[in-house]
Simulated assay, not measured.
Amino acid sequence: MAFRRRAKSHPLFSQEFLIHNHADIGFCLVLSVLIALMFEVTAKTAFLFILPQYNISVPTADGELVQYHYGLKDLVTILFYIFIAIILHAVVQEYALDKINRRLHLSKVKHSKFNESGQLVAFHFTSVIWCLYVVVTEGYIANPRSLWENYPHVYLPFQVKFFYLCQLAYWLHALPELYFQKVRKEEIPRQLRCIALYLVHIAGAYLLNLTRLGLILLLLQYLAEFFFHMARLVYFTDENNEKLFNVWAVVFVVTRLFTLTLYILVIGFGLPRVENQALDPERGNFFSFLFNNILFRMSVLLLVCLFQASVMWRFIHFQLRRWREYWNEQSSRKRAAAGTKQQAKPLKRDSGYHENGVVKAENGTSPRTKKLKSP
């Protein structure tokens, strides 16, 4: 991390220098923005990086409420929090994961997967707690009708917008981390697909004004992912311990059912009942006008169902492969145990012991030979 002593120095602005010092470079950039807050000339520009923009005062019965909507200036804020995510990524890697890896002595493949799961466990755990706090304080769980009432939800509370900006920043920071962490070429396509899916869904919920539904869906998704990556960490430390995979399987199935139910409830039944369905771009209800079209609504639901079906198919395939490996391992252990018992079975010997080719009795005397009768 910043200002730590290194065993080996690299040429300035070289590839190795950038890889080994990317967190320190990001720390310097963040620090320069924070220093800019101290001066009146640069403070206004620095606030563009730190605080969400496009705030508006909405009159309420108790006074005025400050809310936000999205715009191009959000890209500047996302860029600042990308550097924050890079710094936190390096902190978790150096002060937690690297120390554990030194004790486990994992192979290169397991070492890479352990680092990936360790980073995602920290992120998913933080996101689940944060997302749960937001949906509870905003009343989205207590009042499910709020997921589609007064749609489009153009104006967002501060914590909702800030949550979405941080989520976009984290998944965008994962792209350069593929280079900084020297991820193997075989793993890059899979991780790119995962990052792209998260970015498309989060940005889609943010831009389509479906932020309330997106919060609930992210909570369910991150909860299932947390148990999966936690189970992988436990498995890497003890390969005989697979109990958390069973917990993850149950949580995964439950979250898929809740996800599909929420999609049908909100898109299929909730949004078509929204008032003021006439097209009014100034009010921002272009998407509510689209969701009132039954063809568009059914197309969205069909895509959602197909995507969830593909996810469930991959899950079932993974479970079948895991169970097949488990039963093959159990059968091989039984065969090995049976072979060991046969080898350990004692041979039947005559009473006494052998000495110079003659069987001796227990008292040391030779057994009496039987006399043959003469013909």
Rank of each mutant, 00 (worst) to 15 (best):
L220N: 04
T137E: 08
V92E: 10
M230G: 09
F236M: 13
F236L: 12
A36C: 14
H22Q: 10
T42F: 00
T60R: 08
P176N: 10
Y95W: 14
L51K: 14
L147Y: 04
F49E: 09
C194T: 14
R349N: 04
Y140D: 03
V121M: 06
T42Q: 03
L12T: 15
Y54S: 01
W148M: 04
L223G: 01
S107G: 15
L156I: 05
L213D: 00
S310K: 07
N241L: 13
K348C: 01
A61M: 10
G270Q: 12
I86M: 09
W148P: 05
N209W: 05
V234S: 10
N143L: 04
V234T: 00
I84V: 15
Y222N: 15
H10A: 08
V183H: 07
T211M: 02
K185R: 13
V109N: 06
T340Y: 14
K182E: 13
W313N: 13
P272D: 11
E242D: 11
L320V: 15
E242I: 13
I100Y: 11
Y353A: 02
A337F: 04
I35G: 04
V121P: 04
C305I: 15
L192I: 12
K161D: 08
F114P: 06
S331E: 15
E149V: 03
E138W: 02
D98Y: 05
Y95K: 09
N115E: 14
Q93W: 02
I87G: 05
V128F: 08
E177C: 07
K110T: 05
Y326C: 11
